[in-house]
């Protein structure tokens, strides 16, 4: 009997954690989008007030952001400093591909991340700010949607995990 109760608790706990892990994907996605937007705001400040060279600006931004978004900026800066003749787009892509396992972005958001690579270091100050401002706007929209999805799915997946486990236990018993 004791073994049965132990098994039931194990099933409920594992389905609860499964549901929780899915809901944490939505939480991470929101957090990472917020970090990326914060990074772009910092970039605007670096360019507007300091005309900081891109590799140095990325180092400054990366050091202030949380993982894994901070690691993308730091990785891109390191790629640029290696003097291998890679374009800014390639350096950025190498960096986000290295961190892609830890990213919780949707396919559309990954496209925006890729598109940012095309914007780095292009044109004069105004051009540069315009290009990143456009992606910033699209990211804000993605963040709004991500927050809505979080609200919808966070509790649902947690409850679904718990209830799914309980239902399974009732059937088995």
């Amino acid at each position: 009997m004791l073994l049965k109760y132990f098994g039931a608790a194990l099933i409920i706990a594992s389905t609860y954690f499964y549901g929780n892990s899915i809901s944490s994907f939505y939480r991470n996605r929101v957090g990472q989008l917020e970090e990326l937007l914060l990074g772009l705001e910092m970039f605007h400040t670096e360019i507007n007030y300091g005309l900081t060279p891109l590799p140095l600006a990325f180092m400054n931004i990366g050091a202030k952001l949380r993982e894994p978004v901070g690691a993308i900026f730091l990785g891109a800066a390191r790629e640029m400093q290696k003097s291998r003749g890679l374009s800014a787009r390639r350096c950025w892509q190498n960096a986000w591909e290295d961190s892609s396992g830890a990213l919780a972005f949707s396919a559309r958001e990954m496209k925006l991340l890729e598109r940012l690579g095309l914007a780095w270091g292009k044109g004069d100050k105004n051009d540069q700010l315009r290009q990143t401002a456009l992606i910033q706007e699209l990211l804000r929209q993605a963040l709004r949607e991500a927050r809505e999805e979080l609200q919808k799915n966070d509790k649902m997946w947690k409850y679904l995990g718990l209830l799914g486990g309980t239902t399974l236990v009732i059937f088995l018993l």
Binding site: I47, L51, T52, P53, L54, P55, A57, M80, G85, S87, A88, C91, W120, G121, K122, G123, D124, K125, D127, Q128
Partner: peptide
Amino acid sequence: LEKTLELISNYSLYAFEEEL
């Protein structure tokens, strides 16, 4: 030309407006 321009400007054309 694009890559060379990126390299000579240290990926930061915006920082070289006066020079441009």
